[in-house]
Design a protein around this nucleic acid. Structure first.
Length: 871
RNA sequence: GCCGGGGUGGUGAAACUGGUAGACGCACGGGACUCAAAAUCCCGCGGGGCUUGCCCCAUGAGGGUUCGAUUCCCUCCCCCGGCACCA
């Protein structure tokens, strides 16, 4: 334990106090403005890590600050309690996922309490409880009713480690979101999907209005949705029939000199039949099907293809064009077939160059040399050429005109394509919400009637991590009766993606004990939307997209009035630390490296890795528990808030933590040392006049109020707010020397001495109140020692007195040609003329202007004078 | 390649709408207290120069606008993050 104030006793004392009087429990209150402050709830993995502590420290300052500002603050916490690691633990340690999860929750909750976070624990939500997941099932049934949940056979992402399918979002970049080292493979399976695509336009359009979100998160969601506007066009086949293509550039249709099909396209094989190319095409397609999807879709991959032997007709030029099959066309996007315009699309250009296919320019850039022989595709705007009736039209305009023409002629129509796919929610796992449907041989897929919810997740199950859904082996669960006909039937044995849980937990916090419906619409209306949401960037597309989707669904179900869940989003940076790596022993703990930077085991020189996110594998984690016993919660919080702005990555520094601890101790001693004086302050009153010293201290106090308030209001500049508090602390330490002794009572003191006591106590009291959101335990304790009875958090946030904050004299710099040459100390508000005269007569300025002409003098009152000198 | 965010001392970082670059912290150096150490407190701390009070240079590089640019504009370099055969 570090030397200093008794944080262990103090922190325990105030945590008990807060708990005993339910200090953070809130109910709806029409008399105060509401504020909903939320941090992403954790997965109960076992213990809290520094990333959680940072996330929740940020949220706690926001919640406590706004409470002091008079808001009715909802600040809840819960547990994202379903998920794969529980099953993994069950498999490895033979403990039931439920027991493992509940133990972890109990322990992590005790850790959160020790950090002093101001949660309303009466609203705690735990997703693995039937009183929560029954509503997942309820939502599923509602979606099913509305055609927003459906089952289909499709190629899906499969993770070998999870032994389950994943959603597209969870398989981004071809790897499992949870097992970064595990590639995702494609499987053809029949699965349940939620129709997020039904809301795609709204999800996209509403992004624009999310001004309180970081730009990059909005861009990531926009990219993920991937909207493309264009047209679908039917190309007639020479042999009869048509091929439909999608293009975003109908204005380049006249430049389409060939077509390309995806290897999976049903026409690929049929078209080649009887052309002599059949075997070549079959072999190519076969090879492509076997190729790993990731490799095949890599932009760096060489373009490969074969001619089908068949021809189509360009519907506008009536030209005969060959049809190819190639690796770079994907079946899952658009129609799985493209028109190739090599002059104006780089991919088509590359392909045409490789296979010597014709290239025809149909767009000429304006104001640039006429395109003759191309070295690359030109994909910009320009004027249409060689385009029949459209020649001469600007391409943007031409695009629309071609669409009109296609529609008139019945050979095509305007079309929109999206990259986003429906959300696959089936999981072949045990520890999740059972999907509430029953399969009946006679009636087919039958939803579980609402009155039969919840479908309880059975407890007796063997966790194997292989061989399909664990629930499928629980006979008592699987065997049931069809709700429609009463005959024997089977239950669905897949469970839901855990992201379903987190898609509406923030809504549940408004009415966590509701038993007749998932949410109480009146309470949802009272609290939603979340005013400030805080969490990691890793959920930019996953959770944050699903939550937006669910909120809109809830709105359409009449449960929620808000269309968007989170008004402001803060994505906090990671907590990082350097790592140490021994060439023979791998990653080492700091204790396994000596002062000379050598491995204590083998003496080899250790490589100091760059600072990266704390992780077990890098052995660079700092356990919050260790720091709690060394310095206490307030110090950890303070360091995490002071070391970097919240949205930036933070580099862990043991010395920095000590610095934060030192600061808190200095504040502590300030109150300790002046206890006698503080006791007397109540008997004193401000007088009309004050000495310069008293005015200076009061100025520091009120300037600090203004700075801290501005820093907190203006997108959470905790680091600079704390810097301001440190400065006030220093000012008060300095001022101590000017304080009188109160041995014989204050009555005997001269007026100025009394004013000094008042000014000092005002500064100290202010310091404690302003520090409260950051270091709540210490602030409560000091507040008590300052003789205040009620909690510091019942105290209104101080308001800076502008008159007191203003200095009567200001420093005005004198510049010559923009360089500072002198400083003047003048009264605030000194007139421009006077400032100019003072500057010109200033002794230090003379050498710079002597023998030269002062052309101009720029005067900024209370700031500077700049003399423009020539010659 | 496209999009987003960055580049400031030994170091984490400050600098409100263009107006004193480096607040605050850490590290480091010096001093006080102490038998000593720890803790604490005080002083110094971008680089260079000398006449010790100033001068010169300095916010990735180079231009520009301006009385004045870390801040605005242009060109380029580098770093981080995201997206990318999506037709």
């Amino acid at each position: 334990m570090a030397r200093g104030y008794d944080f262990t006793r103090i922190e325990a004392k105030w945590q008990e106090n807060w708990e005993a009087r339910s200090a953070f429990a809130v109910t709806e209150d029409a008399t105060r403005p509401k504020y909903y402050c939320l941090e992403m709830y954790p997965y109960p993995s076992g213990r809290i890590h520094m990333g959680h502590v940072r996330n929740y420290s940020i949220g706690d300052v926001v919640a406590r600050y706004l409470t002091m500002r008079g808001y009715n603050v909802l600040h809840p916490m819960g547990w994202d309690a379903f998920g794969f690691p529980a099953e993994n633990a069950a498999f490895e340690h033979g403990v039931h996922p439920a027991a493992w999860t509940h133990d972890n929750i109990a322990y992590m909750k005790s850790q959160l309490r020790r950090m002093g976070f101001s949660y309303d624990w009466s609203r705690e939500v735990t997703c693995c409880e039937p009183d929560y997941y029954r509503w997942n099932q309820w939502f599923f049934l509602k979606l099913l009713e509305r055609g927003l949940a459906y089952r289909k056979q499709a190629p899906v992402n499969w993770c070998e480690r999870c032994q389950s399918v994943l959603s597209n979002e969870q398989a981004e970049g071809g790897v499992c979101w949870r097992h970064a080292d595990t590639p995702v493979v494609q499987k053809e399976l029949s699965q349940w999907f939620l129709k997020i695509t039904a809301y795609v336009e709204e999800l996209l359009a509403d992004l624009e209005a999310l001004g309180g979100w970081p730009e990059r998160v909005r861009v990531m969601q926009k990219n993920w949705i991937g909207k493309s506007v264009g047209a679908e066009v039917d190309f007639p086949l020479e042999a009869g029939g048509t091929i439909r293509i999608f293009t975003t550039r109908p204005d380049t249709l006249y430049g389409a000199t060939f077509m390309v099909l995806a290897p999976e396209h049903p026409l690929a094989l049929t078209l080649s039949a009887g052309t002599g190319q059949r075997d070549v095409v079959a072999a190519f397609c076969e090879k492509m099907w076997r190729t790993d999807r990731l490799l095949r879709t890599d932009a760096a991959a060489e373009k490969e293809g074969v001619f089908t032997g068949a021809y189509a007709v360009n519907p506008l030029t009536r030209e005969r064009i060959p049809i190819w099959v190639a690796n770079f066309v994907l079946m899952e996007y658009g129609t799985g077939a493209i028109m190739a315009v090599p002059a104006h699309d780089q991919r088509d250009f590359d392909f045409a160059t490789t296979y010597r296919l014709p290239i025809r320019v149909v767009i000429q850039p304006v104001g640039e040399p006429v395109l003759a022989s191309l070295t690359a595709a030109y994909d910009g705007d320009g004027v249409m050429v060689e385009s029949g009736r459209f020649s001469g039209m600007p391409s943007r305009e031409g695009l629309l005109a071609v669409c009109d023409y296609l529609e008139e002629q019945g050979i095509g129509k305007r079309a929109v394509n999206y990259r986003i796919r429906d959300w696959l929610i089936s999981r072949q796992r045990y520890w999740g919400t059972p999907i509430p449907v029953i399969y009946c041989d006679a009636c087919g897929v039958v939803p579980v009637p609402e009155k039969d919810l919840p479908v309880i997740l059975p407890e007796n199950v063997e966790i194997t991590l292989s061989g399909g859904s664990p629930l499928s082996r629980v006979e008592a669960f699987v065997r049931t009766r069809c709700p429609a006909c009463g005959k024997a039937a089977r239950r669905e044995t897949d469970t839901m993606d855990t992201f379903v849980d987190s898609s509406w937990y923030f809504l549940r916090f408004t009415s966590p004990h509701e038993t007749t419906q998932p949410l109480d619409p009146a309470k949802v209306r009272a609290w939603m939307p979340v005013d400030q949401y805080i969490g990691g960037i890793e959920h930019a597309v996953l959770h944050l997209l699903y939550a937006r989707f669910f909120t809109k669904v809830c709105r359409d179900l009449g449960l929620c009035s808000a269309g968007e869940p989170f008004t402001n989003l803060l994505t906090q940076g990671m907590v990082c630390k350097e790592s140490y790596r021994c060439p023979t022993h791998g990653y080492r703990l700091p204790g396994e490296v000596d002062k000379a930077g050598r491995c204590t085991e083998c003496g080899a020189s250790v490589e100091v890795g760059r600072t990266e996110k704390m992780s077990k594998s890098k052995r660079n984690v700092v356990d919050p528990n260790d720091l709690l016993s060394l310095y206490g919660a307030d110090t950890i919080r303070l360091f995490l808030l002071f070391a970097a702005p919240p949205e930036k990555d933070l580099e862990w520094s043991d010395e920095g933590v000590q610095g934060s601890f030192r600061f808190l101790n200095r504040v502590w001693r300030l109150v300790e040392d002046q206890a006698a004086l503080i006791g007397c302050a109540e008997q004193l009153a401000w007088s009309e006049t004050a000495s310069d010293e008293v005015r200076a201290v009061r100025r520091a106090t009120h300037q600090t109020i203004a700075r801290v308030t501005r820093d907190l209001d203006d997108s959470f500049h905790f680091n600079t707010a704390l810097a301001a508090l440190m400065e006030l602390q220093t000012a008060l330490v300095r001022f101590q020397e000017a304080l009188p002794s109160v041995g014989s009572g204050v009555a005997a003191l001269p007026e100025d001495a009394r004013q000094r006591i008042l000014a000092f106590v005002e500064g100290l009291t202010t310091l404690v109140v302003l520090l409260a959101p950051f270091a709540p335990h210490l602030a409560e304790e000091l507040w008590e020692r300052l003789g205040r009875r009620d909690s510091v958090f019942r105290q209104a946030w101080p308001v800076a007195d502008a008159a007191l904050a203003q200095a009567d004299t200001v420093e005005v710099v004198v510049q010559v040609n923009g360089k500072v040459r002198a400083r003047l100390s003048v009264g605030r508000g000194t007139a421009e003329d006077r400032l100019r005269a003072l500057a010109l007569s200033e002794g230090k300025i003379q050498p710079w202007i002597e023998g030269k002409t002062v052309k101009k003098a720029v005067v900024v009152p209370d700031k500077l004078v700049n003399l423009v000198v020539v010659g």
